[in-house]
Every structure is written in C-alpha cells, then in structure tokens.
C-alpha cells in the first residue's frame, strides 16, 4: 500500500451516468494483487470532502489503473469533472482479492457499478482462457457497456427489459446455473442484490465470493469505521472482532456464508 499522486489519462462517460477514469499509477500498480482490490481517492487537497472515496480497481496493467464509477453525490461529481492531466492523490492497493480456481465453471455477477471488480476478474480469467460466465445487470440498456451475447457467455439483464433478459441478475443467474451447474459464483453490486445471491448460493450449496461495500474512513484499519456483521470468526491480523469485520482490511471480498447483511 502506497499513497501516490496519479496523473489522469482519460475520464469519460461510458454509459448513462457511468464513468471510466484511467490514470498512471506506477507505485500502486506494482503492489497490485488482483481483481477485487480497491483504492482510496482523495477528492481535493482542501477539506470540502474530508474522507477519501473507495473505488474498486477495474483494470491494472502497464502502470495504469482504471476505475468505473457512478455519480452518487458530491464526491463522484467532482471526480467526473476531472480532466486528462489532472492529478489525484490515491492510496492503494487496498483489501483482498477474489480467489478463484482455474478451469472451474465460474459465474461472475455484477450489478450497477458493482461491475468494476467483476469486469476486472472477467478479464483476468479470460487471459487464463477460463470458461467463465459473465452476468451484468442494470436498470435500462443505456447503463450497459457490453452487448448481450450468450454465445460468448455474456448475459445482460435490464429491469425494464430494454436489453438482454428482463428482470434482475437473479433471472440470468438461475438460467446460467441451470445450464452449467457452476462450481463458484463471484458477485459485486448493491446490497439487496448480494443478499439475494447469498440466499441462492446457500440454498444450492455452491461456494460464492461477494465483494461488499460499507462507508469507509481510512481504508487501512486504523479508524474501525467500515464494519460489516460477520458470521464466522477467523482471527485476522487487524480485524480481531467476532461480531464485526473491517471491510477495508478483511474484505472487501467475503465468502457468502461469512457475512450478514443487516
């Protein structure tokens, strides 16, 4: 983990309200462990927005890192106004990464901006010529950056049925699972989605890794702010708690059976 002043290369709206930013970050890239890790971005040197904003790494190669983000409030709005050449102070890489087995039939599920770490994992597995399945959900087709292409194992869903399968990612997950009886599910997205995936994988007795979000302070385990309720207790280096786990150092990736969504 390092703090680094990174130089923005690109910052573009790639779908409705969804942005992709790429920057040069040689120090952070050199410590990168894999899809699922995140960074903490300082929005401005002043104290208008005191806390850094956590963002999953969407890609990391050749000293370049990209993120995919949605404008939620003031902080992400500020990010969207940055232009190529601007400098941001970034802390990372932070947290753990997805642990997969090569040649498994992995199903990857991303909802909303939860697609960032999922796409990253998809690319990582693709390089290993892994036979994975990708499911991405959005409200409408304007929010999608892929094409629905079941032949290529890419399944899109939209709440309004304007693209791919109508409904949520759960519809696609059921279809894909029926066909392939996957060996592991990897998911990131809003909490209601993760909750449904959690009950689905527990019911079908398949392992799953979920990337969770929580309101984050420091990102390095010193403020104890970003907790999630945990079911299983494993003694981790920083997060010693039984009932709670610090998402920044134990997570953001958890086995589906390990966390409780309140």
């Amino acid at each position: 983990m390092k703090t680094e002043d990174v130089i923005i290369i690109n910052n573009n709206e790639i779908a409705s309200e969804i942005w992709e930013m790429e920057f040069l970050a040689p120090k952070i890239s050199s410590n990168y462990k894999g899809a699922g890790q995140f960074i903490q971005i300082q929005l401005d040197p002043g104290w208008g927005n005191p806390l850094r904003r956590p963002m999953s790494i969407a890609s990391c190669r050749d000293s370049k890192i990209s993120i995919i983000y949605k404008i939620f409030g003031q902080g992400t709005k500020i990010l969207s106004q940055k232009i190529s050449g601007d400098v941001l102070n970034v802390l990372g890489p932070l947290g753990n990464s997805f642990q997969y087995k090569k040649n498994n039939l992995n199903i990857l599920v991303g909802g909303g901006v939860g697609l960032a770490p999922i796409i990253n994992l998809w690319k990582e597995l693709d390089e290993l010529r892994d036979n994975s399945y990708l499911i991405i959900g959005a409200k409408t087709k304007n929010e999608h950056i892929h094409s629905h292409n079941p032949d290529e194992h890419i399944y899109l869903t939209t709440d309004d049925g304007s693209m791919g399968l109508p409904g949520t990612v759960m519809e696609a997950l059921k279809v894909v699972y029926e066909n392939v009886k996957s060996s592991e599910v990897f998911a990131c997205g809003p909490e209601p989605m993760l909750k449904q995936i959690q009950s689905f994988v527990i019911k079908n007795n398949i392992p799953a890794q979920l990337s969770v979000e929580s309101y984050m302070g420091c990102g390095v385990g010193i403020c104890q702010g970003c907790i999630i309720s945990r079911r299983n207790y494993k003694n981790k280096n920083h997060s010693y708690h039984k009932k709670y786990s610090l998402v920044c150092v134990d997570g953001p990736i958890y086995s589906a059976g390990d966390v409780i969504f309140d």
Binding site: S214, G225, I227
Partner: peptide, 25 residues
C-alpha cells in the same frame, strides 16, 4: 474486556470534519 463496538454505520463525513461512533471497539 474486549469490546465489539457499536453497530454500523459508525462514521459519516461532515463539513470540514466527520462524525464517529465507534463505541471503543
């Protein structure tokens, strides 16, 4: 004795600062 601390959310950003209620975890 060890303390688990308070349930989430424990922190929030405010103008030029933050609020916390970690609960002595």
């Amino acid at each position: 004795n060890p303390r688990e601390g308070n349930p989430p959310p424990r922190i929030v950003e405010t103008p030029s600062g933050m609020l916390n209620s970690i609960g002595l975890a």
